[in-house]
């Protein structure tokens, strides 16, 4: 059984930034126990029903049934190759880029099937922001990076409106103060952590409903990682966030709900403090205590 050892890690997390409440176990409990997940009529941002996915002959996901609640942070954890990234990348159909894939079952985004034949993938992706493992700014200026999404989706009219949106997005990503004097400079001149926050700002600029993060901090140093985590904590008031992470403490710190994937199956899902203090499945316990994976 999981001891109390991981719990203090949650409470240890203290951003020390004014205006941002330090997340504590108590904060996650602010809502009635389990209320968010079962409340009648609660909108599910994402809902998988017996969803399976194959790369060629390799089955990457088997019979996943999972609901992701609006305005919560859901962490997907599990060892490499367990299917968590595949699941994440199915939500905005990023896997379409890979030839010879197929799927079974249902995957719903805000009630509509992601894979239905007449689904406009471009419109779908507009509702889903994505942040990748390695920061991938375009080799353009900071401004142009953030402006790309609004431009390509024709969300704004005129330069002034665009500038406002860029500023707002950069503020939301807690990057504005660091870059406001160098918006026309290349994004590649930023540090790794700044680049990743720029990518978050870029994703936010198209006002997505849900934000997918694929190990967003795995390539960053601890301080940059902490900034990203603070950001996630701030953003969850407005966005549904799904984050894939290899870092157990990170999952414990930032998420409300944790889902443990193993060998393409969803082993266990529950409120994060439940999963980390009182996992019901032996494999989950073994993984979070570091006995494998």
């Amino acid at each position: 059984m999981m001891e109390e050892s991981l719990l203090p890690m949650e409470t240890k997390w203290n951003p020390g930034v004014p205006g941002i409440p330090a997340p504590t176990v108590g904060a996650s409990h602010a809502l009635p126990e389990g209320g968010k997940q079962v409340a009648a009529g609660a909108p599910f941002a994402v809902e998988a029903r017996s969803f399976s996915f194959w790369y060629g002959a390799n089955q990457a996901l088997a019979d996943i049934s999972l609901t992701i609640t609006t305005r919560q942070v859901t962490a997907l954890i599990g060892p490499s190759g367990c299917g968590k990234s595949t699941f994440l990348r199915s939500i905005n159909r990023m896997n379409d880029l890979i030839p010879n894939t197929r799927h079974e079952g249902e995957l719903l985004l805000e009630g509509g099937s992601v894979y239905r034949p007449d689904q406009d993938v471009v419109l779908l992706r507009r509702r889903v922001g994505m942040v990748f493992q390695k920061s991938n700014p375009f080799p353009k200026s900071i401004f142009e990076n953030v402006a790309y999404g609004p431009r390509v989706n024709r969300l704004v009219q005129g330069r002034r409106q665009l500038e406002g949106l860029v500023e707002r997005s950069l503020r939301q990503a807690a990057l504005w103060d660091e870059v406001k004097d160098r918006l026309e400079k290349s994004a590649l001149g930023l540090s790794g952590g700044q680049q990743q926050r720029l990518c978050i700002a870029r994703a936010l600029a198209v006002s997505p409903h849900i934000l997918l993060m694929d190990e967003p901090a795995s390539a960053l140093d601890p301080i940059a990682t902490q900034k990203i985590e603070e950001l996630i904590y701030e953003l969850k008031d407005q966005y549904t966030i799904v984050i894939v992470t290899h870092n157990m403490q990170q999952a414990a710190r930032v998420s409300d709900v944790t889902a443990f994937f193993y060998l393409g199956k969803l082993v266990e899902v529950g409120r994060t403090e439940e999963i980390f203090t009182n996992p019901k499945n032996d494999q989950t316990e073994a993984y979070i205590t570091g006995r494998f994976g």
Partner: peptide, 18 residues
């Protein structure tokens, strides 16, 4: 061209052409 560059554009709602 790195796949992440293409993915970044597509994830922002760009069409293939764009």
């Amino acid at each position: 061209v790195p796949r992440d560059q293409r993915e970044a554009a597509l994830a922002l709602g760009a069409t293939r052409w764009e």
